[in-house]
């Protein structure tokens, strides 16, 4: 080791130990930067955001398009807004298993022994996941425009649909993190995640109109928040009444976040 002398460290000292808003934002920034660099070090972790929108769009449009809507073009108008609703859920899936593996290393212990707000590690994750959702949604829309998606309202309506999907996606990121912090292994996170994901996605109005489904399933799709989100996005793109489904979706997003975010932070504090 070399005999280098260290310069003195100047750190703002707060007798109360409270963390101010600016410091908190700086911490979240530093942690989000870490998450971005993890993606850079492992580009394959972006496959879900980059490839899923392309594969899903091609698959569903050409497999189901003719059968469900009679024409591919009509089905694009129907399904693409639904896929926008689904992107958040698929992206959020991976964050839970990611945070679970993070705990297998000692780095979370280091964060938890540092003078930072314990929520900042999780908030930084949400920030980066939102970024990944935006990438996935951009690719989805680009793909959809190539296949002939027609925004029958205004670009502003389209943006509103994207923003709504992101808000709901953020609430799912919190849920996924809570799951990741509550179970033991990353594999369990994925297993449970799939179990929840499949019925919610297919038991909704995302892929097919619900009118042909048996009564019990149709009732389920009505309370499924993904149906509401898909309906809201669909009408924001194609025109039609949106107020009801938008409000319901916002209420779900806020409700889910209000429950799962504090629980996730609490689990983060206590997880051993």
């Amino acid at each position: 080791m070399s005999a280098i002398t260290l310069s003195p460290v100047e750190r703002p000292d707060d007798a109360e130990g409270r963390i101010g808003l600016r410091a908190n934002l700086r911490h979240i920034g530093a942690l989000a930067r870490r998450n971005l660099m993890q993606i850079k070090a492992d580009p394959e972790s972006m496959f879900d955001a980059l490839l899923m929108p392309i594969i899903f769009t091609l698959l569903f449009v050409y497999v189901f398009g003719g059968a469900v809507s009679g024409s591919q073009h009509e089905y694009i108008q129907y399904m693409i807004p639904g896929l926008m609703a689904m992107m958040g859920m698929n992206i959020a899936m991976s964050v839970g298993s990611g945070i679970n593996s993070d705990f297998k290393t000692g780095v979370m212990d280091r964060f938890r022994t540092m003078p930072i707000a314990r929520s900042s590690v999780l908030v930084a994750k949400v920030v980066v996941e939102m970024g990944r959702m935006m990438v996935a949604t951009t690719i989805l829309l680009a793909m959809a425009f190539v296949l002939g998606l027609d925004v029958r309202t205004t670009p502003l309506h389209l943006l509103a649909a994207v923003a709504l999907a992101l808000a709901f996606g953020a609430s799912l990121v919190w849920t996924s993190m809570l799951l990741g912090l509550a179970v033991n292994s990353p594999q369990a996170v994925q297993g449970i995640g799939m179990l929840v994901l499949m019925p919610l996605q297919f038991g909704s109005s995302i892929f097919a109109p619900t009118s042909t489904m048996p009564g019990w399933l149709e009732s389920f799709t009505k309370i499924n928040p993904l149906s509401n989100l898909a309906d809201a996005c669909r009408n924001l793109v194609n025109g039609g009444p949106v107020a009801h489904s938008v409000w319901i979706t916002l209420a779900w997003s806020i409700g889910i976040t209000a429950v799962t975010a504090p629980l996730a932070v609490m689990r983060f504090r206590k997880k051993t």
Binding site: R11, A30, R34, M37, Q38, A41, D42, T105, R110, M114
Partner: peptide, 21 residues
């Protein structure tokens, strides 16, 4: 307890930022 995906320098820089440097 370091982040394996980050370089040595990035690890230390991140911790410095978290310590309000």
């Amino acid at each position: 307890s370091v982040d394996e995906a980050l370089s040595g320098r990035e690890n230390l820089y991140m911790i410095g930022r978290l310590l309000d440097l």
